[in-house]
Design a protein around this nucleic acid. Structure first.
Lengths: 124, 124
DNA sequence: AGAGATTTGTACGTATGTATG
DNA sequence: TCATACATACGTACAAATCTC
């Protein structure tokens, strides 16, 4: 049931019915509205958080994530790049939200750089 | 408390005490061992799942994720790339585990490609 | 083949804490 | 001060899949 609720909310977000920055109903409201326990509602929201679709600002509420302004990082000859999920320490360091990967760039000289994936784009 | 347990397990994984492929103790075992409810243990494991550190194979158990063999995808002139978390549909499509981002490559001709981030590396 | 034990998944409920408005 | 809303932690119960005997 929590997957169905997550699907429903995801549809509303991707369709634009819930625009970036818009608040989701409170967990209690959704629990009542859909006849679910708050636990199940929280599982649904947790899924959307892990997908990077919503951000939670306790106890203000849950909101549709808005796109961050991005800048381009240039990949030079001999560089490589990968993406993975950050450790909690890295998330704090880069002040990242949940459900956002980090992009790791390995420079040809052996150094490396870490970026929040929603704030950069790799180019060449 | 679930964060402390997650920290403890994460340390064991990154230090190599729990090697790739090794099983974690069952949720019930850890709950008894650390005097926690199974709920809290599951929250800790969920955190590690979202970080891509472990994979769960119900009902076989939870295991430390092993690195996938990677190939390099070349970024050509005019191409760009980003990373984000996959939708559930994309995860099924690419047969990806949890906690793994997708890397999206936008080609200069307007087409785009999707890859599981743990199976490729971007180069030029 | 079948029975039972084990393990994770799902869903419910309750209570309390913490921060915002 | 009070109400609201999310976070954490406990407990219970049952389902589903795998493994073992």
């Amino acid at each position: 049931m929590f997957r169905q609720l997550a699907d429903l909310l995801r549809d509303r977000i991707t369709s634009g019915a819930l625009a970036p920055g818009a608040p989701l109903p409170s967990e209690l409201r959704m629990a009542q509205e859909y006849g679910l326990s708050r636990t199940s509602v929280r599982q649904a929201v947790a899924l959307l958080r892990s997908e990077g679709l919503v951000i939670v600002q306790p106890p203000r509420g849950t909101f549709v994530r808005a796109a961050e302004p991005t800048e381009t990082v240039t990949l030079l000859k001999g560089d490589t790049a990968t993406a993975r999920m950050p450790t909690p320490a890295e998330r704090r360091e880069l002040e990242m939200g949940e459900g956002i990967p980090v992009i790791m760039i390995f420079r040809a000289d052996g150094s490396h750089e870490l970026y929040a994936a929603d704030r950069i784009r790799i180019g060449r």
